[in-house]
């Protein structure tokens, strides 16, 4: 927290020479730096020595074939892998200079700073209002009902859902359409005012129109948050992201500016994937 207030740029962590990832892994003034991150599910090594920085106010897309470890890596960033039996994370992930896997740090604090939107819209089976108010309530962000109302209203507005639900805030959130539910989940996430939003294939269960709305929303949210999105759709990665990371069988193969990755991939595997030779 102190690093944020003093506005001193966080130093770039050195990347070990063994790192085989092609492209610019590190960025200036990173919000999150991952160094030599490995994830094991029991004996199985799911991702191998991943090094990558996540920049502020930017969308990082993570692409790759199924089972390549992109979702696993995403879930390392807010320690969601902690909830999986037998999962083990090694290496260093630091957010503004402090290790997020530090035993003395409470994971609740981390998850308030790093929000997450899941593949399948999963609103709580409560009212729309309660869905958005839940985070501020458990973290004690609102002093009174008026402030809470304001947070809920603002969050729904920013998620582009306000006009559709303002007359039925007390209806169940599960009664909305799929796209609306996903925007409700985004509203719920931004209600706690996080610094990073992780999105795990947020549009894979949605129709093209709902997808387009979410993509527009991601573009707007970039002004305030760092966004990391896992996607199966290369078009989506090209449309919404500024940086793209390509994963393959647990290895981070290539990272770079999205335009550059899609027009001029340097690694053979990246090129094969992007040109549709497998995927």
């Amino acid at each position: 927290m102190s690093a944020e207030s003093t506005a001193i740029p966080v130093p770039v962590l050195p990347v070990s020479a063994a790192c085989k990832t092609v492209g610019s892994v590190a960025v200036a003034d990173p919000l999150i730096s991952a160094r030599d991150v490995n994830v094991y599910y029991g004996e199985k090594r799911a991702i191998m020595d991943v090094n990558i920085d996540i920049a502020r106010n930017q969308v990082l897309a993570m692409i790759g074939p199924s089972g390549c470890g992109k979702s696993t890596f995403l879930r390392c960033l807010n320690r969601m892998n902690d909830t999986i039996e037998g999962a083990r994370v090694t290496g260093l992930i630091s957010m503004e200079g402090s290790d997020i896997y530090d035993k003395r740090k409470d994971v609740v604090q981390l998850r308030a700073r790093i929000g997450m939107v899941f593949q399948k819209p999963n609103p709580f089976p409560k009212t729309i209002y309660e869905n958005v108010a839940y985070g501020p309530r458990i973290h004690g962000l609102a002093a009174d009902r008026v402030e809470l109302d304001e947070i809920v209203t603002t969050s729904l507005r920013r998620a582009g859902l306000w006009d559709e639900v303002k007359d039925r805030l007390n209806n169940p959130g599960t009664g909305l359409s799929g796209g609306q539910q996903q925007r409700l989940c985004i509203a719920r996430t931004i209600a706690v005012n996080p610094e990073v939003i992780l999105m795990d294939e947020p549009c894979s269960a949605l129709d093209p129109i709902a997808t387009a709305r979410i993509e527009d929303l991601i573009d707007e949210l970039r002004a305030s948050y760092a966004i990391v999105i896992v996607t199966h759709s290369m078009q989506q990665a090209a449309r919404v992201s500024q940086r793209t990371a390509y994963f393959h069988l647990g290895d981070l193969i290539e990272v770079g500016e999205t335009d550059r990755i899609f027009t001029n991939p340097r690694h053979k595997l990246t090129e094969d994937y992007i040109t549709g030779r497998f995927g």
């Binding site: 909830t83 998850r111 899941f118 609103p123």
Partner: peptide, 22 residues
């Protein structure tokens, strides 16, 4: 459904809050 647990954890709920609230 596990998605409810994930949603609660993702919001920063503690385990007891996840169980008690959802």
């Amino acid at each position: 459904p596990p998605s409810i647990r994930e949603a609660a954890f993702g919001m920063g709920a503690s385990r007891l809050q996840m169980v008690g609230h959802h």
